[in-house]
């Protein structure tokens, strides 16, 4: 009896003592999502990147974010896109630099789930996450019409090959027809959607149409360029821009810009990852995921600016 008890105890101890040991291997593997953006030269794209990274962290996925050196480097973007497809990620989101040159996606459309972020292309009908750009154009027109009762209105748009700018212009033009007193005098296309080119366009407009009352710029960067040119020329023209970014919002707060039709880059980035993850999990997703597009005027600029800075984390700008 006593021997049995002791044997039992020894066995118990042996079991407990040898409970651990051996090689333990921990490998962290997450789904990999690739996002190819147009550039990383503006606050808008940084916000998008920020949202993408935050969402990747929240949904526990890896995200590779790649972009060409500027929004016009279609070849580089296509090279990158080709390489991304060859790396066989779990899903791809792309913001095409040229909405008419996305042939490269042909290789991916059947094997890898593809999404459009921020900008669409007509060629393939992939789910889209971003702002409703036509609506942005309409909102811009309405906002401008409230301030300017009659006269000439000009547009400085970004690269026409990018669907975002084209759609914004379309929405703007259509909505403007509701206001017969307003005349769309000219549409200037800035090839690179850059600050400097926008200044150049603004200068030309002022020269050609000195009576111009309002200008709609299809991006935040361009509205800032236009703003600087107007400042130099000391002309009084109502400016309406697109995108939510702190420098432009400060311009609204100061009254130098009439309004911004907001397009929260962070939200676009975050929703993109969320939608891709949901898709990979086999859930139903909306074909078009539109983010909010609020109109930011002098009255609410401060509020939006604060909200925007908090969302992105302080000192991130």
């Amino acid at each position: 009896m006593k021997r049995n008890v002791i044997t039992g105890l020894v066995l118990l101890l042996a079991c407990l003592l040898t409970g651990c040991g051996g090689t333990t291997e921990t490998t962290v593997e997450k789904p990999t999502l690739c996002v190819v953006l147009k550039a990383m030269d503006s606050v808008h794209w940084m916000s998008v990147q920020d949202g993408l990274e935050q969402a990747a962290q929240d949904y526990d996925v890896s995200v590779n974010i790649l972009w060409p050196s500027n929004e016009n480097d279609v070849d580089a973007q296509n090279t990158i896109l080709r390489d991304v497809i060859a790396s066989k990620p779990d899903a791809i989101a792309v913001s095409p630099c040229d909405s008419e040159q996305v042939d490269v996606l042909e290789q991916a459309k059947d094997t890898i789930p593809c999404f459009y972020i921020d900008t669409r292309a007509e060629q393939f009908d992939f789910p889209y996450i971003g702002a409703d750009n036509e609506n942005i154009g309409r909102l811009a027109a309405r906002t401008l019409a409230q301030e300017v009762e009659n006269g000439q209105i000009a547009v400085i748009m970004g690269n026409n090959r990018q669907s975002t700018h084209a759609e914004r212009l379309q929405g703007f033009t259509e909505e403007l027809k509701q206001y017969p007193a307003l005349e769309l005098c000219t549409v200037r296309e800035s090839e690179t959607s850059s600050y400097l080119e926008s200044m150049k366009c603004m200068k030309e407009i002022l020269q050609a149409y000195p009576e111009v009352k309002g200008v709609f710029c299809t991006s935040a960067l361009m509205v800032l360029g236009a703003m600087e040119e107007l400042d130099k020329a000391e002309a009084v023209v109502k400016l309406v821009g697109v995108d939510m970014q702190s420098d432009a919002m400060s311009g609204v707060e100061d009254g130098k810009i009439l309004a911004l039709v907001g397009q929260n880059g962070y939200e676009i980035g975050y929703q993109t990852i969320r939608t891709m993850v949901q898709y990979l999990q086999g859930k139903d997703i909306d074909h078009n995921v539109y983010v909010e597009t609020p109109v930011i005027t002098q009255e609410n600029a401060a509020e939006y600016l604060e909200k925007y800075l908090t969302e992105r984390g302080e000192g991130n700008d």
Binding site: T23, T24, E25, T26, T27, V28, K30, S62, N64
Partner: peptide, 9 residues
Amino acid sequence: VIVTKVTAP
């Protein structure tokens, strides 16, 4: 030994 692996995405 304990082996921990992380693959760069």
